[in-house]
Design a binder for these strands. Structure first.
Lengths: 353, 353
DNA sequence: AGTTAGCACTCGATAAGAGTGAGTGCTAAC
DNA sequence: GTTAGCACTCACTCTTATCGAGTGCTAACT
């Protein structure tokens, strides 16, 4: 059987209607509302064909039709029309994300918030994994009796600092020496290439005289290095699911929220996704184990080098066109915000920003 | 009417039973299970009295009795018995929180996690508000083309750093000068006493030649200072509510989760609570607007100076004795971890930790 | 006077049955 | 190929009946 023009038109109408109403679509409704000049009976025949071809199902004999995953796939690939954001929304996104001096994490967080607000779905965003960064310097600063600050700075200016409470005694000089040794040992190295098993041994050779300090300190140093490789996950709009009919059931809502709570797993899944806009529908999300949801993600770039990712998750019945456009517009703006501007490549002038 | 011995015993049995079963307690059950040597009829008479006195209600005529808020209050104040944690749990708490070199934020986060795991409720913890801290130095570091790092360090070693993307051009020298001016201007000042309205004006006088940089930079500087005064809120076990009968209703669960999502409001409420263990029951939580929940919080101390707070929230029908004991044990361990050890007050030696 | 057995009564919860209506599938006519 | 007509399906809603845990009251017992 062939997917002719009319079948496509009917399928599109069904998907559109179902996305809007969340109710199975009947032939009568379709004939009336969507202004196609054919009778319900004809539509029924076509729907029957479409069902045979796998694009439609119905929950029970006497209910209307609902799109299958295959239908959503077709819809997303070729049927759906481009959605143009209202100027007002565009402006909101722009002004929220395009600060002239923007803090990365905070901006990503804002991007997640704006995504969830505009789509009424659950949104998330991960910061780029900066695993090619090289250590620039390491500083252990004395602070109070009983605490030191460990500060690690990378080439790209990623800074990590950690306040450590310690019950091992130290002198300012010892800390300074420790800082120097650490910097000397690891400067210019990529975090990911530092061998964490040898790290204590290395150090103990250098600092025999203060092994108790080193022993206490190094595990934290290593942990901090690991942390610097972690990507941060921001999530927003979790409770939006309560206004979605698909989750109008305690178990469904519980399962969704519990799964969203496992941030590590979610981050893993996000990291592995394709670049650019990627839409996965229903069982295509087998890595997430959420067969009733769709995931739309996009990538953004920082300094044209590091890749972060953001997107939304919701029921398979979602506004693919609108959501995709919003995500695209948000990533465009993020990219602009995080691009090395030409203005900036010349470090000399005092040009006005 | 008087609350005699027997009435108290019956009330206690009802509260215990209801906390365990979440079902209204009937006179027959009570007579059988709780081994009091009196007949159901007698118990009914007593229950009727207790209801008249405001300690019990029943949801409808033919249901058993459930404790009122007043009963919980009485129970918490004088009826409930001290719960001794099993050695195993104690050990888990100890080993999770008592690292010899512990990072503050991470430890607080762990405390929240362990609370939610052991109580099966929703837990939270806020970091102390370090508003008496004085600025030690401020550093603006060049990093990449297009980004600088703003680093602020306080006396107590609280460090804040922020990567700022800028499209305003700068030279290394300018940043160094900016750092020096900022440090000179604000060193020794308490963050909370810095006048944020004059801050730009001040600076522009000092750095006439680079007003465009300053203009772009200073709002971020101020924002970062504000951020340093913020307390961090950690929360865990949100989805635990799905296994609590009281929330076995979409609306109840939704309202709870939505309210928990407003972290700012929650933080406000937490900051204002009494020191030590504080238990508020039902409508006593009018500031939270959660009349069906109880809140148990406790305070922990860092360096004997700064006060943080942690606790759990759950339905009024909760294991007050057990939960309170767990919270107490966790705070005890936090206090020990964050105390300035005697060992540490002498900075000279190389004593073994 | 306090305690207890007996009994009618209450009321939520569960199950079964009737009625409704949106929708289908098939057939025959256009 | 399209459409009108019609029997049939089945979730949903509303009503009614039944069940049982529990109360409140009364009268008898200690």
């Amino acid at each position: 059987m062939e997917l002719n023009e009319r079948k496509l038109k009917i399928l599109q109408a069904i998907v559109d209607d179902f996305i809007f109403s969340a109710e199975p679509v009947g032939s009568r409704t379709l004939s009336k509302k969507h202004g196609m000049g054919i009778s319900p009976a004809t539509i029924r025949n076509e729907m029957s064909d479409l069902e045979e071809m796998g694009y439609l199902t119905h929950p029970h004999t006497s209910a209307g039709r609902i799109p299958s995953e295959k239908a959503y796939r077709l819809y997303v690939n070729s049927l759906m029309e481009r959605y143009e954001l209202p100027a007002e929304q565009k402006h909101t996104i722009q002004s929220t994300l395009n600060a002239s001096m923007a803090e990365l994490d905070r901006t990503i967080e804002k991007a997640a918030r704006i995504l969830s607000e505009m789509t009424n779905l659950t949104s998330f965003a991960i910061t780029p994994k900066q695993d090619q960064e090289r250590l620039k310097y390491i500083n252990v600063l004395p602070v109070d009796d009983g605490s030191v600050v460990l500060m690690i700075v990378t080439n790209a200016g990623k800074v990590s600092n950690t306040v450590l409470k310690t019950n091992v005694s130290y002198t300012d000089e010892k800390l300074e020496f420790l800082s120097k040794v650490l910097t000397h040992n690891y400067k210019g190295k990529q975090i990911s290439e530092i061998d964490k098993t040898d790290i204590i041994k290395d150090l103990e050779n250098d600092m025999e005289a203060m092994s108790s300090l080193v022993e206490n300190f190094m595990p934290n140093f290593m942990k901090t290095l690991e942390d610097m490789l972690n990507v941060e996950l921001y999530m927003d709009g979790l409770t939006n699911i309560f206004s979605i009919p698909e989750f109008n059931d305690m178990d469904k809502a519980r399962i969704f929220l519990e799964r969203m709570n496992k941030k590590d797993e979610l981050t893993e899944v996000l990291i592995k996704r394709d670049d650019g806009i990627m839409i996965t529908i229903g069982t295509e999300n087998n890595d997430l184990n959420m067969p009733d949801c769709s995931l739309i993600t996009a990538t953004y770039h920082v300094d044209g080098k590091y890749v972060g990712r953001l997107g939304v998750i919701g029921p398979t019945r979602m506004n693919y066109d609108k959501v995709t456009s919003i995500i695209e517009y948000v990533t465009d703006n993020l990219n602009r915000t995080f691009k090395i501007s030409e203005n900036n490549n010349t470090r000399g002038g005092d040009a006005n920003g």
